[in-house]
Amino acid sequence: MSTATSTTTAAALSDPAPVSRKARRQQGALTRSVVLHVLSIAVLVVALYPAVWMLVSSLKPTNEIVGDPSLLPSSAGLDNFRTALAGIGGVSFWTFTWNSLLLAVLSVVGTVLSSSVTAYAFARIDFAGRRVWFALMIGTLLLPFHVLIIPQYIVFQKLGLVDTFVPLLIGKFLAAEAFFVFLMVQFMRNVPRELDEAARIDGCGHARTFGSIMLPLLRPAIITSSIFAFIWSWNDFLGPLLYLNSPEKYPLPLALRLFVDQTSVSDYGAQIAMSVLALLPVMLFFLVFQRFLVDGVATQGLKG
């Protein structure tokens, strides 16, 4: 590293006209910044136009939403939000939100705990049969989940766990989602081995190496997993549909579908309004958590 620094100094010293070069570099930086922002804004427009359309539509009269693709409404009002917030069948909007929140937070906790522990075993412990188990773990990704629904339901029914949150959460605490395990394995394998080997040589067992060396280094992966675990749980429809019976345990996705019913009256306005409301907490969650993505801790570890 010190050689690198000295090269820079030497280069700067040998430059015949350091001032003009600096100016050129500044100008270059400015052009670069402008280009980057133009690109970002272009992506922004594409990314957000549908979001804006959705937001504006939530203010439209309910019969103008489907079939009218224009952005501007003929009239705007908060009626749809009033319907959405009124609750369904005596269960309030806030109950649905609370259930969603509880499920999502517990999913994050369970997923992060269990997946990181499992991933550590695969990435860093040299135990017999590791490759076989790893292949099986990847194997669980292959089968479309629809054919597993009924057998899994039977398991939980025999255990008397239908109409509880257990079937929706137990998989998260048992690292059943190979996506997260594999994600963390990939990140762990990219952590330089010297770091944890040093700790091992110092007499740390795997448990301490995992807790005090690996977990902090894994922050980007943990944040990423938390974001996904939260969002997926937040949007999960099928699990709650099958396993929850009492409306007071329903999360938002179940409630959302009740506004559109092909067999009677559909209220598209209320559905969009509730979708907008349901998006706010996830957006907030993402806004807060993405900040932690900014500083990669892994690089600090490398400096030593």
């Binding site: 499992t118 412990i125 135990f127 398991v155 059943a176």
Partner: peptide
């Protein structure tokens, strides 16, 4: 220790 770390996943794998 490998299997201890793997235990939660193993349970999940076999049961679920």
């Amino acid at each position: 220790i490998g299997y201890a770390f793997l235990a939660p996943w193993l349970i999940g794998f076999f049961v679920l």
